[in-house]
Design a binder for these strands. Sequence first.
DNA 1: TATGATAGATTGTTTTTACAATCAGGTCGC
DNA 2: GCGACCTGATTGTAAAAACAATCTATCATA
Lengths: 257, 257
Amino acid sequence: MHDDNRGPVTTSIKDLFINLDRAGPIPLYYQIAQRLQDAIESGQLPAGSRIENEVELADQLNISRPTVRRAIRELADKGMLVRRRGVGTQVVPGRLKRGVEFTSLYDALSLSGRSPTTRVLTREAVVPPAEVLEALALPPGTEVLHTVRLRYSEDVPFALLENYMPPAFLDLAVADLEKYGLYQLLRGRGVAMRVARQTIGARVATKQEADLFEQDPGSPVLTMTRTFFDQSGQAFEYGLNSYRPDMYAFEMTVVEK
Amino acid sequence: MHDDNRGPVTTSIKDLFINLDRAGPIPLYYQIAQRLQDAIESGQLPAGSRIENEVELADQLNISRPTVRRAIRELADKGMLVRRRGVGTQVVPGRLKRGVEFTSLYDALSLSGRSPTTRVLTREAVVPPAEVLEALALPPGTEVLHTVRLRYSEDVPFALLENYMPPAFLDLAVADLEKYGLYQLLRGRGVAMRVARQTIGARVATKQEADLFEQDPGSPVLTMTRTFFDQSGQAFEYGLNSYRPDMYAFEMTVVEK
DNA sequence: TATGATAGATTGTTTTTACAATCAGGTCGC
DNA sequence: GCGACCTGATTGTAAAAACAATCTATCATA
């Protein structure tokens, strides 16, 4: 092995953890996990490098071992660290591009430099089809907010976003929808997003989609339907999205448990 | 007044946990999590029902609170339970169809009653295109195993699976590939799967795909490319899959962290 | 009536301690 | 030389305890 692992194991790893805030509201394990993640993503802890063992680390930081363990576990759950009993913990070797989100919860595009713009095509209060009400767990006949938005990247439309939301959101304004993005707005209203159930598929574009995306009729679109639940289990969004497949794809990292 | 009845606390929850194996190799927290999950999926713990608080539960089971916590956390991470400080823990309300996997790691179809069959179209040792070698982190000129398989559901082909694997797997036999499925085979050889990076998209079918799927030329296909890494960070599979979109879609549950 | 304060319930964080299981590498015996 | 065994290193599991933060609901007060 050309790689000498027994000697200085990234000698200054301890320096990553100076100035931990023991009094503030942010948990210690979270601060540690955050700094580790930053170090990995910045290349300070290169792929494949080993990090010190838990006991040693806990000792050096004057933190209990369970707390250090929890921090390491957070990153291991995200697939950034690999641990093996009797051996140690190392940064996942290989080229998992950094800066990519791990959960596919948000549109990949908004994170990659380009800032998409949005135009609202429809904003209305309607009684939606039965399956929508069922997905939102609302009684038949309920009026909900129905929006259709078109999203552009550099003036080229690439996504058609159709959404239904419960009556509580009937007052969302078009201007806000175009300016802030849906999730940002909902979060601002105190919605605590928790779990989403989504289905990704493909089909032939509708006439409307073909027109909007400036594609030939019969060309393919990538689709995603999603129901989003908040903390209390209440569905607060049902979405039917379609994407121009040559401009959009879903990337995700999956971790085997 | 020893029993305050604010909500249906499923009085007999304790019965779920009889006969825990304290001596065996399966961790206690895992056993508890497993039984909870079974109870939820079987409907014994209906959606929205509350489960007893940690302290009480730990007490009744004669298990320490951290162990109970860990079990509950496993399910909360999967999005099956929702916890709120000061309030309690409840089964996620709403109709997350049970029996669906949560990670999208495996083909959804294999779990839904139908047992797909597989035919091997190609099995050869080749020097693959540069991008494949790069994805597998192998030096230029390396010979790898290249397979193309067609997967059927009830005699109808719905997936075309093209895979590249490192030289260690050059001896995989066609018969085994048709009988066991790739991941089962790899696991049997001691490969410890850990993280996968995958991209889901759509495009127009190639002529081969249109022929195999018995679709018109120009019809859409759903695609997924995936690189799979084992525990040591070594890539052991690079796959380029395409699916008939009217027969296949990716379902997943995403949990906000 | 409305509003603010308080108390109880419940999960969240942290520490300390102990032992178990697994892995890598070296040693000993053959 | 080679396998069996041992040993040290490291992560995994479990328990007990204490205190913090947050939510609900009730009660007191303006």
